[in-house]
Design a protein around this nucleic acid. Structure first.
Lengths: 200, 200
DNA sequence: TCCGCCTCCTAACGAGCGTTAGTTAGGGGT
DNA sequence: ACCCCTAACTAACGCTCGTTAGGAGGCGGA
């Protein structure tokens, strides 16, 4: 990871620390130390600690949204390829965004609550809108008989938290490539909304 | 919730605050204010902030373990009723522990990382041992042909994070009762490890 | 009546917090 | 030669942090 700007290096260091110790558990002097600088010198590059968190979270929100937008653009409402393909694509995209930048993704998933005021509300809203895409495709699939499930809300909650849980165990240098995980997670998620074969 | 001891009231208040703002984001004066006391007066009931977190996390670890122990005792190794029933029972038990005390469960899931030194290591080990029960039953089921899956480790990770994700959206006063959720989650989890019926 | 516990208080400690102010050193453009 | 920009520094601000010390009031049991 070659750093171009000092600002980027600071955000990378902050992401890593926020992930490890949480936003509240990380001091600006901790971040500064990670880029070999005095605490006060950080403020030449950054206006506040809160703004660093915002920058990280906002960028990741944008990535998730863009990935989902691309899928919607390719197959509006899943009308062409059906809810199964649409759901699989959403899952693969979600996994891809996480594995692409695990530190920032982890901060996005766990630390967005540390945002204050309007920014927190904005992210809460955008998260909800994003999750609604999953709820919609699941509800669609159930309505059309492609999926079977107890409740679209519960199923969406189950799948989405499973996907986000990836940030707790994914290791870039681990046995499984992002591709492997995307394949597995797409498979598991599709099964989750389809009736199981009976077996004893 | 009728409080018997002052200590219990303090732990309840701390659980609620740790859940909302995180361990680092909560000060001892915040906890004290929640039980209408001066910050320093807390130390008549508690030896340190860290010890309060430990008390909460340790108790919940015990609950999860006890619930799983009961299942193992009733059907050792799933030898009698098979992996399907065993997994369903584990899932129902896990959901039950969470819905039974959502605040403490949420702290257990998210804030155990704030523990320091040996205590953190101990909980990490106990968590891993607990999760191994899920991995084992899934691997068993795959070996015996009851389950089909891409990888027992991935499947276990997927299911466990889905279950733990319940702490982020469960509301005791919501539409769904703990029973409803246990039913749905047991169903969804079983599907996750079984091949889907083909449908278009 | 007195003892001892329980609960809570005020005052204070040293450390660390996020942030501001003012300054310095070096390099590139005019 | 001059100027400004960038990137860093030291010093300090007011505040909050977790925690300790020492004491006061009330209540149950001997």
């Amino acid at each position: 990871m070659v750093e171009i700007t000092r600002r980027q290096a600071i955000e990378d260091a902050a992401s890593s620390l926020f992930r490890e110790r949480g936003y509240s558990g990380t001091s600006v002097r901790d971040i500064a130390r990670a880029v070999d600088i005095q605490g006060a010198s950080l403020y030449a590059h950054v206006t506040s600690k809160q703004e660093v968190l915002w920058s990280i979270v906002e960028r990741m929100a944008g990535r998730f949204e863009a990935a989902a937008d691309a899928i919607e653009a390719a197959d509006p409402g899943g009308a062409t390829f059906g809810p199964g393909v649409y759901l699989i694509d959403l899952v693969r995209a979600h996994v891809g965004v996480i594995t692409d930048d695990i530190e920032r993704a982890s901060v996005f998933v766990h630390e967005w609550r540390a945002l204050q005021g309007d920014r927190r509300a904005e992210i809460a809203g955008r998260r909800d809108a994003y999750e609604a895409r999953f709820r919609a495709v699941i509800a669609d699939g159930i309505r059309s008989g492609t999926f079977q499930g107890p409740d679209p809300l519960v199923a969406a909650g189950y799948i989405l938290t499973a996907l986000n849980g990836l940030v707790t165990w994914y290791r870039p240098d681990g046995r499984l490539s992002p591709r492997d995980i995307a394949d597995s997670y797409a498979d598991l998620s599709l099964r989750t909304v389809q009736s199981a074969r009976r077996s004893r």
